[in-house]
Simulated scan of single mutants.
Amino acid sequence: MAYKSITTFVSSAAELEITLPPAIDFAERQDAHLSACLLGVDMTPAGGFYMGASPLLLQETLERAQADAESLEAQARKKLDRSGLRWSAESAVVQFGGLPGLVGLRARFSDLVIQVRPYGREALPTQEAAIEAALFEGQSATLIVPETGLGPDFGKRIVVAWNQSNEALNAVRRALPLLKQADLVNIVVVNPPVHSPERSDPGGLLTQMLARHGVRAEVSVLAKTLPRVSDVLMRHIADTSASLLVMGAYGHSRLREAILGGATRNVLENSETPVFLAH
């Protein structure tokens, strides 16, 4: 498998400036087609306006969303025209509550979705919603890029967060084209369970599977010496100068992670390294 159909979803001019350059960079590296979906999002609450409100107000919000989408499409086309890529760009207007359906439909026919990190001072609610929609409704692997972009060493040293879950295994399978191109893949197991089926050889079966694909992989078993598993992962990434983290997304429910936190949310909030996710 190769990444030949890549999609990105953008809903603001600031997000466009951060998201499109690394998406173009990645598509060029993979000789892939890049589809940019430029969104005008109507943030009207799901219940709409209160009874008796003028229909002109609803029309105004829709027209504003349409204008935003068309403006973003024009900006995106200028950038893509200069890239030399095979590309397409289209604008779409959607209410915030309908965003998962629109993103999911387009993401499910993509090999990979590329989005910017969804947390920070300038982040919009649509950014997190688009990522979750791509992962859940679209069942697409998603590459989350920090504001600094991919970096010159992207994909040379990769850390795989391995906890034997279905989500982690799916992420490894979807990331296989990148793993095969890497100089070194480091499978990281944090505090392996004592009674796990892999207790005698943590990560051994995964290493064996990857070796048959020509992937150079090694295993690091780490103690949870910091409060969160995500902290251990990010410290290890820094210590080994890794340029990509591959991990399963949302092993717990999205609601639980939103309220109590979790490895996926904590990594996305704090990582300065690109993160490859699959659910």
Rank of each mutant, 00 (worst) to 15 (best):
residue 256 R to Q: 08
residue 247 M to G: 02
residue 144 I to W: 08
residue 265 R to T: 12
residue 136 F to W: 06
residue 37 C to M: 06
residue 115 Q to W: 11
residue 250 Y to S: 02
residue 151 G to E: 07
residue 109 F to P: 10
residue 156 K to N: 04
residue 46 A to Y: 13
residue 230 S to H: 12
residue 202 P to S: 00
residue 55 P to S: 02
residue 189 V to Q: 00
residue 161 A to Y: 09
residue 249 A to F: 01
residue 153 D to L: 13
residue 17 E to A: 12
residue 181 Q to E: 13
residue 5 S to P: 00
residue 115 Q to V: 14
residue 266 N to A: 15
residue 237 I to H: 06
residue 99 L to W: 07
residue 206 L to F: 10
residue 275 V to K: 03
residue 21 P to N: 02
residue 152 P to I: 01
residue 13 A to I: 04
residue 114 I to A: 05
residue 10 V to S: 09
residue 71 S to H: 15
residue 161 A to L: 08
residue 110 S to D: 11
residue 18 I to C: 03
residue 125 P to E: 10
residue 53 A to D: 08
residue 103 V to F: 12
residue 218 E to I: 09
residue 107 A to H: 02
residue 10 V to M: 10
residue 121 R to S: 11
residue 148 T to Y: 03
residue 183 D to H: 10
residue 178 L to T: 10
residue 254 R to M: 10
residue 171 A to F: 01
residue 253 S to I: 05
residue 208 Q to G: 07
residue 274 P to C: 07
residue 37 C to D: 10
residue 105 L to C: 05
residue 199 R to P: 05
residue 109 F to M: 15
residue 30 Q to R: 14
residue 64 R to I: 04
residue 101 G to N: 15
residue 186 N to D: 09
residue 228 R to Q: 15
residue 193 P to G: 14
residue 46 A to P: 06
residue 54 S to G: 05
residue 112 L to A: 04
residue 138 G to M: 12
residue 56 L to N: 14
residue 49 F to A: 14
residue 218 E to V: 14
residue 239 D to I: 03
residue 244 L to P: 07
residue 205 L to P: 01
residue 164 Q to V: 05
residue 238 A to C: 07
residue 97 G to V: 06
residue 245 L to W: 02
residue 229 V to G: 07
residue 232 V to I: 09
residue 239 D to S: 13
residue 248 G to K: 04
residue 211 A to R: 10
residue 256 R to E: 07
residue 123 A to I: 03
residue 80 L to F: 06
residue 28 E to T: 15
residue 106 R to L: 15
residue 129 A to T: 13
residue 201 D to H: 13
residue 55 P to E: 06
residue 36 A to H: 10
residue 152 P to R: 02
residue 252 H to V: 06
residue 134 A to N: 10
residue 189 V to K: 08
residue 88 S to F: 10
residue 208 Q to C: 04
residue 9 F to G: 08
residue 69 A to L: 03
residue 223 A to Y: 14
residue 103 V to H: 09
residue 99 L to A: 08
residue 112 L to T: 12
residue 167 E to D: 05
residue 236 H to M: 02
residue 185 V to E: 00
residue 165 S to W: 02
residue 269 E to A: 12
residue 16 L to G: 09
residue 184 L to D: 02
residue 248 G to N: 01
residue 179 L to K: 03
residue 122 E to Y: 01
residue 78 K to G: 15
residue 262 G to L: 03
residue 36 A to K: 00
residue 207 T to S: 13
residue 97 G to L: 00
residue 114 I to H: 07
residue 209 M to L: 13
residue 160 V to W: 11
residue 120 G to C: 00
residue 16 L to P: 08
residue 65 A to I: 03
residue 198 E to D: 14
residue 221 V to C: 12
residue 200 S to Y: 12
residue 55 P to N: 00
residue 110 S to W: 09
residue 135 L to Y: 10
residue 235 R to A: 05
residue 105 L to R: 13
residue 241 S to F: 12
residue 12 S to R: 05
residue 120 G to W: 00
residue 112 L to E: 01
residue 207 T to E: 11
residue 133 A to S: 15
residue 258 A to H: 15
residue 238 A to H: 11
residue 102 L to M: 15
residue 151 G to A: 03
residue 213 H to G: 06
residue 9 F to M: 03
residue 134 A to I: 06
residue 265 R to C: 01
residue 104 G to E: 11
residue 185 V to C: 02
residue 199 R to C: 05
residue 3 Y to N: 13
residue 68 D to W: 13
residue 80 L to Y: 12
residue 205 L to V: 13
residue 73 E to I: 00
residue 213 H to I: 02
residue 70 E to Y: 02
residue 169 L to P: 00
residue 38 L to T: 11
residue 118 P to G: 08
residue 73 E to F: 01
residue 169 L to K: 11
